[in-house]
Amino acid sequence: MALNTPQITPTKKITVRAIGEELPRGDYQRCPQCDMLFSLPEINSHQSAYCPRCQAKIRDGRDWSLTRLAAMAFTMLLLMPFAWGEPLLHIWLLGIRIDANVMQGIWQMTKQGDAITGSMVFFCVIGAPLILVTSIAYLWFGNRLGMNLRPVLLMLERLKEWVMLDIYLVGIGVASIKVQDYAHIQAGVGLFSFVALVILTTVTLSHLNVEELWERFYPQRPATRRDEKLRVCLGCHFTGYPDQRGRCPRCHIPLRLRRRHSLQKCWAALLASIVLLLPANLLPISIIYLNGGRQEDTILSGIMSLASSNIAVAGIVFIASILVPFTKVIVMFTLLLSIHFKCQQGLRTRILLLRMVTWIGRWSMLDLFVISLTMSLINRDQILAFTMGPAAFYFGAAVILTILAVEWLDSRLLWDAHESGNARFDD
């Protein structure tokens, strides 16, 4: 018995066209964080690309023209004298008006014999932002004059995390709450300039795509075929072959399989920071003279006294001054041990922890910024005066060393310790 099946006739004509040209192939790229070699397709503007294995951002879609970056830099340069030299806060102490600005706080630190601690604050609040705007201006002028731009481009990517104007702005709020127990506070004209400078700096850093600047100024022929001998440069993120001198053909720094002496430098910085954190938390970090009496505060006791007036601000200072430094030390110690013992479990967790400490590390400088600003506000000789204690130097040095330890660690070593050939990683 035959089955009668109805015929289905399409209502619209289906047209099949042959592909007349070869589909576009992607360029081969190595991930600078996990060293995976993959094919990167062509990316349009405002599109980002991520590593298929570790999800690290390979290409950032946010990109401004150099002219727009230069305009932002010149605007920031105009704001800087007002943000640093004009009063941020006014207080009335014992019937006398006192003005506080950024430069005055750094000068008070240096004047009291601790120039190293003052230079830490100076670099993060004044030096690094000033280098940022002058570097962008150098790129703008240098591109037109045919100057060598490689050193500036190499420095810009590392400079971003040292620009800490946003953290200093939080420190202004913390210092205001600490001082309000002794005097009446009012915002100064410099505060508005400083807030504007923070906003412009944040926007500029978020749109400063150094890798795209490398592509514009020093374009290189990408690798179009897969080759395990391809290496990625950690300076400019170019994937290719080393030249005859073993250097990256684009930025001219040595092109090595792994960062040289990464573990040794990381261990040295980490152990030194552990040693410095002990006096930083045991010795007094601030000293207040009130009517001839002397009151010393460690980091913890200062947080407890701050909690009596504002528990939320005390929580912020606790996280930045105690929780973050010790968390960074514990995480980095764990990561280094996992590399030495070739741990194969929990790779995803370790990668996330490394990215976390990379982002939060700079916030530990908050305590030094609060001390710097408070020193310029309260300084009335023996009637009422505020000065920093010996722990300030140890704390600042420990924070900087932990930042350097994270920067010096080559994250690809975590993958080397893991089993080879993993296309995915999980716990």
Score class of each variant (00 low, 15 high):
residue 182 Y to D: 08
residue 129 P to F: 04
residue 325 P to K: 02
residue 276 L to S: 05
residue 349 T to A: 11
residue 334 T to R: 14
residue 384 L to H: 02
residue 23 L to T: 12
residue 282 L to E: 04
residue 13 K to Y: 06
residue 192 F to I: 12
residue 410 D to N: 00
residue 289 Y to M: 02
residue 364 S to H: 02
residue 350 R to N: 12
residue 210 V to F: 12
residue 212 E to H: 14
residue 19 I to D: 10
residue 405 A to N: 04
residue 223 A to T: 15
residue 139 L to V: 07
residue 58 I to H: 11
residue 374 T to F: 03
residue 308 S to I: 09
residue 147 M to T: 05
residue 398 A to W: 06
residue 232 V to P: 05
residue 343 C to N: 14
residue 404 L to V: 14
residue 280 A to H: 01
residue 414 L to E: 06
residue 337 L to R: 09
residue 12 K to A: 12
residue 140 W to S: 04
residue 127 G to A: 04
residue 180 Q to R: 06
residue 121 V to G: 07
residue 75 T to I: 09
residue 307 A to I: 06
residue 412 R to S: 02
residue 273 S to E: 03
residue 35 D to W: 03
residue 362 R to W: 01
residue 257 L to N: 10
residue 295 Q to Y: 10
residue 195 V to F: 10
residue 138 Y to D: 01
residue 53 R to D: 07
residue 355 R to N: 11
residue 186 Q to L: 11
residue 174 V to M: 15
residue 7 Q to F: 07
residue 273 S to W: 03
residue 395 F to H: 02
residue 83 A to S: 07
residue 322 I to C: 15
residue 260 R to H: 04
residue 116 I to G: 07
residue 357 V to Y: 00
residue 422 N to Q: 13
residue 375 M to R: 11
residue 88 L to N: 04
residue 280 A to W: 03
residue 341 F to R: 12
residue 73 A to D: 07
residue 383 I to K: 01
residue 281 N to W: 04
residue 336 L to E: 03
residue 5 T to Y: 07
residue 115 A to R: 02
residue 241 Y to I: 06
residue 28 Y to E: 13
residue 235 G to M: 01
residue 222 P to D: 09
residue 99 D to I: 06
residue 54 C to G: 02
residue 404 L to W: 04
residue 335 L to P: 05
residue 24 P to V: 10
residue 262 S to V: 03
residue 76 M to W: 05
residue 278 L to C: 07
residue 273 S to D: 06
residue 406 V to M: 13
residue 357 V to W: 07
residue 116 I to V: 09
residue 68 R to V: 04
residue 319 I to T: 14
residue 8 I to K: 12
residue 56 A to S: 11
residue 183 A to D: 01
residue 294 R to F: 02
residue 83 A to F: 02
residue 369 F to M: 04
residue 210 V to R: 15
residue 404 L to C: 09
residue 413 L to G: 05
residue 210 V to A: 10
residue 300 L to E: 03
residue 218 Y to D: 06
residue 317 V to Y: 02
residue 334 T to D: 06
residue 199 I to P: 09
residue 388 M to D: 07
residue 194 F to Y: 11
residue 219 P to S: 10
residue 193 S to R: 03
residue 202 T to A: 10
residue 288 I to L: 05
residue 257 L to D: 07
residue 113 G to I: 14
residue 243 D to E: 07
residue 354 L to G: 12
residue 184 H to I: 07
residue 52 P to G: 05
residue 116 I to Q: 09
residue 317 V to E: 01
residue 112 Q to E: 04
residue 384 L to G: 01
residue 409 L to T: 06
residue 303 I to P: 02
residue 6 P to V: 13
residue 128 A to D: 05
residue 287 I to F: 08
residue 352 L to H: 12
residue 176 S to Q: 09
residue 65 S to R: 09
residue 417 A to K: 08
residue 57 K to A: 11
residue 42 E to D: 09
residue 415 W to T: 13
residue 6 P to Y: 07
residue 223 A to V: 09
residue 368 L to F: 03
residue 29 Q to K: 13
residue 244 Q to S: 08
residue 135 S to V: 01
residue 303 I to L: 10
residue 119 S to T: 06
residue 186 Q to C: 04
residue 95 G to P: 01
residue 202 T to D: 14
residue 407 E to V: 07
residue 200 L to H: 15
residue 121 V to A: 07
residue 380 R to N: 02
residue 38 F to W: 09
residue 411 S to C: 08
residue 337 L to V: 09
residue 163 V to K: 05
residue 147 M to H: 02
residue 347 L to I: 11
residue 36 M to K: 12
residue 101 N to H: 05
residue 10 P to G: 05
residue 349 T to S: 14
residue 110 T to F: 01
residue 313 V to Q: 00
residue 146 G to C: 04
residue 351 I to C: 11
residue 35 D to K: 00
residue 237 H to Q: 10
residue 159 L to V: 06
residue 21 E to D: 10
residue 181 D to A: 03
residue 105 G to C: 05
residue 152 V to Q: 02
residue 16 V to Y: 12
residue 76 M to N: 04
